[in-house]
Structures are given as C-alpha cells and as structure tokens.
Amino acid sequence: MNLLEEHAKIVHFITLAGEVSGRKKLQKMVYIAKKMDLPFQEKYEFHMYGPYSEELTLRIEELCNMGFLSERLEDKGSYVKYTYACTDEGNQFLSTMNREQANLSICVEKLNSKKSRFLELVSTLLYFDHLTREQQIEKIQVVKGRLNFSDDELTEAFDFIQELEMCLKQ
C-alpha cells in the first residue's frame, strides 16, 4: 500500500525511538534525519525554534487521529509536554507497509538520546550547512542569540553532525 507511505515512515521512526518526548524534539529529529539524506518528504521552513515543518505537525496529528500514534500530555507547570509512541494499531498498520530505511535505527537512537536544546542547535546548524563553519556560528548568534550557546556546545554539535554522517555512511 503506497498511498500512506509517508505516514508509515513517521510511525516507523517513532517505533524505532520507542517514544519521543516533546513536539520540538520530534520536529528536530526528523529534520536532522532528513538532512542526513533519509527519505522524509516533509517540507521545513525556518521558525521560532529553528527548522519546523507544518506538514510534519499535520501528519503527526493525523496519525494520532488514526490511532497509530499515542499522544500523552504532561503538565510541566509553565508548559505542556507531548510524548509520542506507536500503538498496537500503528504496529499493525506498519506490517502492511514496505519499510526499507537503511541505518535509520542507529540514527534515531542517537538523536533520541539528545536533549531538545541540543537538537535545536544541531538542526539550526544544518539549516545553514551551505555556509562555512565560521558563518554558521555567526548565523547561530543572530537567530539563536537568546539561547547563548557556548563554544563547547557548538563543538559538540559539529562533532555530532560528523558522527551521524559517518554512521550513516557505514
């Protein structure tokens, strides 16, 4: 069944992660995976927290309505956190689809182990990956000035990008 192929890719992604805590985190994880040439079709634009896809938001909402994903809300006081996981129905749906996304599992695991703030930095750096490293850092200071990323965080982010690229090449 090819008509819901793009939906299946997202369900598969979340299945591999086990669960993903935070809408922002999920947005960045898919964006980074896409930048690593994994075949996600969702279009991204630059947004308040970096690259953001309205199409992905819609797809997640649809998948929750379809019963393939569960959405759990946690009241964190000043904000609400949304956690996504695959349901039994979602697993059944996946069994009807082709799922051939090489190396996705390692990539998802690495991404899910990182915090949302770090993924925001990594995805923003990747958004400007046509620039030199120095220009990317300058750009981070312009668009993410308020987050005050340290030099160590920037180095860690560049290393992480390299690590992902290496791991997906293998």
């Binding site: 090819n2 008509l3 922002k24 947005q27 308040m48 927290y49 904000y79 609400v80 956190k81």
Partner: peptide, 28 residues
C-alpha cells in the same frame, strides 16, 4: 494502474494560533 489513478489527498489549515511557551508548532 493505482499509482496514477487512485490518489489520497489531504488539505489542512490552522486559521490562527498563539504562542504556548515551551512547545514547538506555535506561530508568533
């Protein structure tokens, strides 16, 4: 051929939204 003659299509719109701190997906 269903690849060309059977097509699933969605449209979606959010007419207005406001900022909810701490979460992604909001608009200014």
């Amino acid at each position: 051929n269903p690849s060309y003659y059977l097509v699933f299509d969605s449209s979606s719109d959010l007419p207005y939204d406001f900022y909810r701190p701490g979460e992604e997906g909001e608009r200014v």
